[in-house]
Amino acid sequence: MTEPTPPTPSLLLTPVEARVVATLMEKARTVPDSYPLSVNALLLGCNQKTSRDPVMELSEADVMQALEELRDKNLVREVSGARVPRFEHNFQRGAGVFEQAAVLLGLLMLRGHQTAAELRLNAERWYRFADVSSVEGFLEELQERSAEKGGPLVVKLPKAPGAREARWAHLLCGAVDASAPGSGSGAGGANQARIEALEAEVAQLRATVALLCKELGVSPPGQDE
């Protein structure tokens, strides 16, 4: 298997830079009312314990340094006019990729190696892909990206023993060690994603039931009169 050529130097990121820009990409989709982010909010997002692989313990100085580098690479912008500095990503334009490709790269940067099926599931709050085949199509385009455009941005890893599907990894931090631990992959990663989706659905259903009970003038189930 031929080793893929990493992206051009302007797109090569450190792990901290990848975490910072991907966190901005995530929050733009999932909490638009709080976006663009202050440095403090961005730091909290980078250091989340959920939906992150690996989990990091970054300092404010780490985030500030990464923001400076990302601004030089045209992947992040500072928003003017705010009382405190706020930042937004410019990844899609800076990297020269389609929206769907940017979503997949952001998820790979945040959650590590994943199968196409896991990426589709994890992308629910970012972008709704029609099916797994559409995810695979965009991944294949990113893997076959021409040298003129900077080379491949993802690689399909060899299928692990006993695994039903191959995992994908991004190349934004350079070449990937296919023998590295599963980084958000396999049954554990898929189960975690399903648990998070179910928890969000349950919370939404509870809110709907509470609203209906209020309109009907009755107590929600499980509450004393």
Rank of each mutant, 00 (worst) to 15 (best):
M1G: 13
E3G: 07
L12I: 11
T14L: 04
P15A: 05
P15W: 02
V16I: 15
A18T: 03
R19Q: 09
V20A: 02
V20D: 03
V21F: 04
K27V: 12
T30P: 01
P32W: 07
S34D: 13
Y35F: 10
Y35T: 06
S38W: 02
S38Q: 12
N40R: 12
N40A: 14
L42V: 08
L43E: 07
L44P: 00
Q48V: 08
K49D: 15
M56Q: 13
S59C: 04
V63G: 02
V63C: 01
V63F: 02
M64S: 13
A66W: 04
L67F: 01
L70S: 07
R71M: 14
R71I: 09
D72E: 13
K73R: 13
N74E: 12
V76Y: 09
R77K: 12
S80T: 11
P85K: 02
F87P: 06
E88K: 13
Q92E: 12
G94D: 00
V97L: 00
A102N: 05
L104Y: 01
L104H: 01
L108F: 02
M109A: 14
R111C: 07
G112K: 03
H113N: 12
Q114N: 13
T115L: 08
E118N: 11
R120K: 14
L121N: 05
A123C: 07
A123K: 07
E124G: 05
R125P: 02
F129S: 06
A130F: 11
D131R: 06
S133A: 15
E136F: 04
F138M: 09
E141R: 15
E144Q: 14
S146V: 00
A147E: 12
G150I: 00
V154G: 04
V154E: 01
V155I: 08
K156L: 14
K159C: 10
K159W: 03
P161R: 06
A163D: 11
A166H: 05
W168Q: 06
W168M: 06
A169L: 08
H170G: 01
C173S: 14
C173F: 03
A175S: 15
D177R: 13
D177H: 10
S179V: 11
S179W: 02
P181N: 07
S183K: 11
G184C: 07
G184W: 06
G184M: 09
S185H: 08
G189Y: 06
A190I: 08
A193M: 05
A193P: 08
R194T: 11
L198V: 14
A200M: 09
V209H: 02
A210T: 09
V218M: 01
S219I: 03
P220S: 04
P220E: 08
P220M: 10
G222C: 06
D224A: 12
E225G: 06
